[in-house]
Amino acid sequence: MTIDEIQKDIIEEFALFDDWMERYNLLIDIGKGLDPLDEKHKGNDYLIEGCQSKVWLYPELADNKLYFKAESDAIITKGIVALLIRVVSGRTPEEIINTDLYFIDEIGLKQNLSPTRANGLLAMVKQMKLYAIAFNAKLKSAEDGN
């Protein structure tokens, strides 16, 4: 599936609910389903600053693709980061850099994107893109080296 197709899927899943409580229930379920992060990656190195709840985001490059694992101590935040992972994890860094994450707006989480909002959704997206930029540079320099 392309990034676009996954985003459309998520939008459809959330479109089934017009009630906020149901949407949160869905986010909670998604959050609970997120693979746990290895304890050794739950240190300050992977902690995203600027969130009221703690979020750890761990990147890994395999076969030129960037994979993310994450965890949060707040379950709704965990649901949000799980959605982000579903969309961007396992893509090339370049794809991640160029992705427009429009699904956030479409499923009504846009208000959570404001820089002052405490859940740090913006900080999570930014961190994912920063990792993508860093790994992209690494891949590029490896290619140049060849």
Binding site: M21, Y24, Q52, S53, D73, A74, I75, I76, T77, A118, N119
Partner: peptide
């Protein structure tokens, strides 16, 4: 988490 409580 207090943040989940506040959000809901």
């Amino acid at each position: 988490h207090q943040y989940d409580v506040g959000m809901i």
